[in-house]
Design a protein around this nucleic acid. Sequence first.
DNA 1: CTTTTTACTTGCAAAACACAAGTAAATGTG
DNA 2: CACATTTACTTGTGTTTTGCAAGTAAAAAG
Lengths: 142, 142
Amino acid sequence: MKKNRSHCPVNFALEIFGDKWTLLIIRDLILFNKKTYGELKNSPEGIATNILANRLSLLEKEGIVVKSKDPNNSKVNIYDLTPKGIDLIPVLLEMSIWGAHHDPNTAAPPAMVKKIETERAAVIAQIKAAIKDPSKNIFKNK
Amino acid sequence: MKKNRSHCPVNFALEIFGDKWTLLIIRDLILFNKKTYGELKNSPEGIATNILANRLSLLEKEGIVVKSKDPNNSKVNIYDLTPKGIDLIPVLLEMSIWGAHHDPNTAAPPAMVKKIETERAAVIAQIKAAIKDPSKNIFKNK
DNA sequence: CTTTTTACTTGCAAAACACAAGTAAATGTG
DNA sequence: CACATTTACTTGTGTTTTGCAAGTAAAAAG
């Protein structure tokens, strides 16, 4: 797709992650602290491997993730969020709130949704902390 | 596309508006108080007429907009947001903030971005008021 | 040295999209 | 009242993207 249909900020965002898969990858990176191709491939939605590879390279090109080699296992690549990627936390949280409210079969635990709504800033801080230290994650297996 | 890849709330949202056009239509309905096919068609991004018709029917099917005839001009159709559509305001605002921060050529006025960030609840209330009374709109021509 | 793991790439059919043109009903104009 | 215009789409066609299955390559494990 040719870019710059407009310089509306909503359009800018959609030109980068306006599809059915990119934000799911970002969700896994931000909320579930996934870091490798293999971990991302195993999400319940079942992304195709060519789509995953394509989206990761686009995200890298856009400066939302950076790719590096795992120092302990040089056949594993690590995808880390940049500040530009970390700034997507509020977008993901608002989409979560909307989805939880309007999907009658949502898997989102009501207590977690309420916590996001009432303690927004604290939850964002907690997610940022977990990006640096995954043991602090509050979403895993939710 | 077959639905229900998962019941993650983020995925639920993406299955409805995970593409390059749907949220742009919702932006126009929410932020610019557009109401007709013709108004939506004239957005700067230049949506194709078949895509617009398709997305409007999907949004109607999902209960995000309702279609009715303009009582003053029966050849014009009016698309109104439902509460489910109005609940997307925070998603749009967060995407706007992100886009404004990370697009070096953004068209978003810095004062407006700052206002959204610092007076979030008031801005949301103002947008809701403008949905009922477009003369209260603070985004038009921005 | 062979097998397994990890991260992709390739090929191909199906679906979605973009663009141009056409249709139909309601309204405005002479 | 005939004719042009406006509004809201629909249709056709070629291109692009997606989805699925299979294959490849390099590093690590056995």
